[in-house]
């Protein structure tokens, strides 16, 4: 089903990643991880394969540790909702270099396309505003990519991006599942030792 009010997840993520080559990226388990990997493997991406709810708080800790870099969490609506309270923590901390990108297909894509809360009444953009995030962008087409990329590169304020995507299932693109290797490669790209 193609909904004119929604964008292809792969097209959106590929276009965004291409515009922000220097950003540090954390991806939420499932399709968001596949989307970012499909856009091209990069040392400065941390791919989550589990720990549902971790993508956004992990990006928060990273953003505070690396204030001179743009940090982006790319995750799905259900992964995000499992740790939704983190938006309150982010609102209190207000890291100017953090962008949270939520790919919302209103379904649990990994487990059989059951309808999720965002298809049953929850509006994530309103949720983010309610938590006190001041800059909330809603995107439903590729025309939304440049303004999002500008916010990412600008590091001028915490930004929440609610991306309405089709509930389709593009081919899986699976990054390596070795979290230790991913961590070490990521840190090496920042000039940091393994530990």
């Amino acid at each position: 089903m193609i909904d004119a009010g929604r964008v292809s997840r792969r097209d959106f993520v590929a276009a965004l990643i291409a515009e922000i080559p220097d950003a540090l990226v954390v991806t939420g388990l499932g399709s968001a991880t596949y989307d970012v990997y499909s856009a091209g493997d990069r040392a400065q991406t941390f791919y989550l394969w589990g720990a549902m709810g971790a993508a956004v708080p992990m990006a928060l800790g990273l953003a505070l540790a690396q204030p001179e870099r743009s940090v982006v969490a790319v995750t799905g609506d259900a992964e995000h909702l499992m740790g939704i309270g983190t938006l309150g923590t982010i609102s209190a901390a207000r890291p100017p270099n953090l962008t949270v990108v939520v790919l919302d297909n209103a379904h649990f894509g990994e487990t059989g396309m059951q309808r999720s809360h965002t298809g049953l009444g929850t509006d994530l953009a309103s949720v983010a505003r309610g938590f006190g995030i001041e800059t909330v962008l809603q995107v439903a087409s590729l025309a939304g990519v440049p303004p999002v990329a500008d916010r990412v590169r600008g590091r001028v304020g915490t930004t929440y991006v609610h991306v309405l995507i089709h509930a389709d299932e593009p081919p899986r693109a699976l990054p390596p599942r070795d979290g230790v290797a991913n961590k070490n490669v990521f840190r090496a790209a920042l000039g940091l030792p393994t530990f």
Binding site: P57, M58, A59, G61, L64, A65, F186, L190
Partner: peptide, 8 residues
């Protein structure tokens, strides 16, 4: 974990 990824 995110802090450690970023060196803190």
């Amino acid at each position: 974990c995110g802090a450690w990824l970023g060196g803190q």
